[in-house]
């Protein structure tokens, strides 16, 4: 009698569990790229493994992103490189060639990390002028973060358009697009700098000057560089 009861209870629980799991699985979509899509060779696969096996993808993406930032000169660009940096920088025209693979690693771990697309594509595209890589990165971001109601989604699209115009040196359109991208409080510094430099290329020295002022205010650590830039622009404005 007791044995029958035990088996019965266990059976009911198991069926309940199975039904619940089926109900969840019918609606729940695993929101990450699966292991099979890992298309790069990682030099530190423990991050990917930790992300996959311990459920720490988001944190692993953060770590890769911090490595990327350090590789790209750290938060304050122009400072001397830390001794013993992990990556060797190549020659001038092919500088920071690890930048794209590092960004790819970060967004493979967490494809919803929109900062990586924004900052990464700006650095690779506008600064390093490797438009192909930057476009690939941005397109991935647009696919993974498709959500027309969300402004983040549109910023990625504007950035993509801006990259296209920049490639053909149509600076008026680049400015048009980039203004949409940087138009929010927490806009990363690199996008503001890109916009300021584009104003300058478009001979819009006054606007460039004003934007550098903003950058100087918002990122006090950049004061030195901002001063130099503003001095140079003041000369250009004066000679015009």
């Amino acid at each position: 009698m007791r044995k029958v009861l035990v088996v019965l209870v266990l059976l009911i629980l198991l069926v309940a569990l199975w039904r619940l799991r089926a109900a969840i699985d019918s609606e729940y979509i695993y929101p990450f790229p699966p292991l099979a899509t890992m298309h790069f060779v990682s030099d530190n696969p423990y991050l990917e493994l930790g992300g996959l096996f311990l459920g720490l993808r988001s944190l692993a993406a953060d770590v890769v992103w911090v490595k990327t930032l350090q590789y790209y000169g750290g938060p304050t660009e122009g400072e001397p490189e830390m001794p013993g940096a992990e990556y060797e920088h190549d020659s001038e025209q092919w500088a920071y060639q690890q930048l794209f693979p590092l960004c790819e690693r970060a967004v493979w771990l967490d494809p919803y990390f929109t900062h990586v697309y924004n900052i990464g594509s700006a650095s690779i595209g506008f600064v390093q002028e490797r438009y192909d890589e930057a476009v690939i990165l941005l397109k991935e971001g647009i696919v993974w973060n498709y959500n027309p109601k969300d402004i983040h989604y549109w910023r990625l699209n504007y950035a993509l358009a801006a990259l296209g115009y920049d490639k053909v040196k149509d600076y008026a359109h680049v400015i048009n697009m980039l203004q949409n991208v940087v138009d929010y409080e927490e806009s990363p510094m690199i996008l503001l700098r890109v916009l300021a430099n584009t104003y300058e290329k478009n001979n819009d020295y006054r606007k460039a000057y004003t934007l550098w002022e903003v950058i100087g205010r918002r990122f006090p650590s950049q004061a030195g560089q901002v001063r130099n830039k503003m001095a140079a622009l003041a000369v250009k404005i004066g000679s015009k």
Binding site: S58, L59, D62, V66, L69, Q70, P75, F113, H115, M189
Partner: peptide, 24 residues
């Protein structure tokens, strides 16, 4: 340490590290 190394994403990094620590 990590959040100071990644400007613009401090909140995300602190949250991720914090939750990972809590869980592990």
């Amino acid at each position: 340490v990590f959040s100071s190394l990644s400007p613009d994403t401090e909140a995300r990094v602190i949250t991720d590290i914090g939750l990972a620590c809590i869980e592990l």
